[in-house]
Design a protein around this nucleic acid. Sequence first.
DNA 1: CTGTCAATTACACAATCAGGTAATACTTTA
DNA 2: TAAAGTATTACCTGATTGTGTAATTGACAG
Lengths: 213, 213
Amino acid sequence: MATSLVIYEDNARLRQSMELLLSDDSGFKVIGAFPDCTKVLKQMEELLPELVVMDIDMPGVNGIEGVKKIKSEFPDIKVVMYTVFDDDTRIFDCLCAGADGYLLKNTSPVKLIQSLQELAEGGAPMSPFVAQKVFTFFRNTKPVEDTFNLTPREKEILELLVRGNSYKMIADKSNVSVDTVKKHLQNIYHKLHVNCGTEAVAKALQHKIIKLD
Amino acid sequence: MATSLVIYEDNARLRQSMELLLSDDSGFKVIGAFPDCTKVLKQMEELLPELVVMDIDMPGVNGIEGVKKIKSEFPDIKVVMYTVFDDDTRIFDCLCAGADGYLLKNTSPVKLIQSLQELAEGGAPMSPFVAQKVFTFFRNTKPVEDTFNLTPREKEILELLVRGNSYKMIADKSNVSVDTVKKHLQNIYHKLHVNCGTEAVAKALQHKIIKLD
DNA sequence: CTGTCAATTACACAATCAGGTAATACTTTA
DNA sequence: TAAAGTATTACCTGATTGTGTAATTGACAG
């Protein structure tokens, strides 16, 4: 039995060629194809497809919002993104929104069909480039970050700064004078190659020298 | 020219059959095969392979430690895990350790070769089941989009602050007076429930109101 | 059409921050 | 033992930041 499928794609020509591609003996049956997500929930309710192929850039309600809506109401419908966008932000937004796969539009028709099969079988197809991004993401979550040669004391002071303390408050909590704090921060700023507190905080968090939770 | 490759696998039979599989016309050349990672760095230094296939469960130094060592010294060597383990902990530990791919041992020989090719081309091959785990991971770590009701203009100003600009610099870049910037930041501080710039930066980054990259 | 909200500017005052310079003391390392 | 690095304090000066109050404009919603 063919796997039922709905397409969201604002480019009419592409939408039609996809319908064509997936109408042969591909094992799929396109039961709906729409140019945007404005009525996505209503459409899902009526059609109840097994799979959804979702573009991102669409007028009105875009694909990221679309997948959020689908997943919140119909978590069992598998949604794969199909888009030209390969930037970190969009990729990770889609993953967080609940997408089950992420394919770039340079995917060959054969690969596309393979990927949809994989999706139907419970897999999570993604283009190699996307997979790479995902792996890189993890690599960066636990890197033994270079500490910029901050001394333990300096880290302590920096953490207090990051947590929103003024020089005076840091001095109190560290049991030293405000001038000492000032000196430490001056050294810290040099080591981080910044020249004010806000920059230091940004850098400390960005490079995970200090972790907040 | 064949892609050079080293195998770490403690099961002698499997190790040999892999060598066999990858010695034909597969486009690969096995230049080393070892039962554990105890001398991994020395071996990498001598052989300098393009790819490494790494088992996890090995006596002495295991595969996770192995990939960490390789990646810290030779970040350009591509390492793919090849294991029976499909539990979250091991998968994510390997990703964080810097693995470039994660294949389960139920992968067919054909798929294995395909995956190694993908790896050599800079991709990040993983078994469908692993891909699924990864996607699920993101779904569960959905960041709560709390924008604290900042207006677009306020976000703009805040971003400039996060990027280390002083009031004066922000004023220039936004084409407004310093006083306006001051006023905006005052409003921003109230909305974020903070009372100084460093705190605002910390909060903005922590809550991903502003993203740096 | 009227009120609310965003964006804007201005001024004044107090607090805080950042830079430079200098000195002391205590470890650790060469 | 001497040199290097860390931690500490102090003082001075100018720049920056944060708060309060007040007023104007334009846009948008009811």
